Computed example of a mutant assay.
Amino acid sequence: MKFLKGCLITFIIFIGICIIGWFSFKSNVLENLESLSGKVKDNWEKYTENIIERNAEFALQQAKNDSLKYYLKNSNELIKSKEYSKELELNEYKLNRILMVNSLKSNLNEKLNLSLDNYNQAVKEYNVYRVTFPNSLIARKTKFQKFYKYFDIRYGIENEKTMARKKERENWIKNGGPLPQ
């Protein structure tokens, strides 16, 4: 009887330790998700501030190109959404292309590329942390975003190949078939 009582007490203590450990681990994962999500949002805000600054720089130059005016205005409107959108990425791609064709240089290209690198790094950290087992078990049942999307534009250089590859990948995800190179 003493042996059975000892086993039962040991089992109850073991279950208690497991429950305490689980709740501790869960709160740690939630704190990390909150922190990483905040880091992504902060980096996105810095990036959009740089876009606004760049748009103001070209607005002061009083560009005569109607396409440039249109994409600058569109960029300012798309930024207000406070998160990644395909429309913003496409707009920035077209805007960058117009700037390069017209040989318009921005002093902020390096700053924009750096802020995008920081954003993409924060996105990678968040996405990897969220899908890693056992974090994914906890993250699945939370309000946190499933994943953030990367922003593939580079300022001051051609992005034709990057955009073509991105379109191929999206088409592959949608329709299947052989993996694009």
Rank of each mutant, 00 (worst) to 15 (best):
T132K: 09
F25D: 02
R140H: 07
I173E: 13
L99I: 01
S75T: 14
Y126F: 10
I173D: 04
K26F: 06
D42K: 14
E83P: 04
L36I: 05
E87C: 07
Y155H: 12
Y126M: 02
S24E: 09
D66V: 03
I79G: 06
L8P: 04
I15D: 04
N127T: 03
E160K: 12
L30P: 00
E31K: 01
C18G: 10
F23P: 01
A56K: 14
D152R: 12
N120M: 04
Y93D: 11
N102K: 15
A56R: 11
I51W: 05
S37G: 14
I17W: 02
K39Q: 09
N107L: 02
N175I: 13
K146R: 09
Y126H: 04
I19F: 00
V123M: 12
L36P: 01
K146A: 11
K39T: 11
K69Y: 01
Y93I: 09
C7G: 04
L36V: 06
N109H: 05
W172Q: 01
Y129I: 03
L8E: 08
E89W: 04
S103V: 10
Y150N: 12
K143Q: 13
L60H: 11
E160D: 15
A63V: 14
I19E: 01
F151K: 08
R169V: 15
E83F: 03
L104A: 13
G156V: 13
I17M: 09
L30Q: 05
R140M: 06
F11Q: 01
I15R: 05
E87A: 14
C18S: 13
K149A: 10
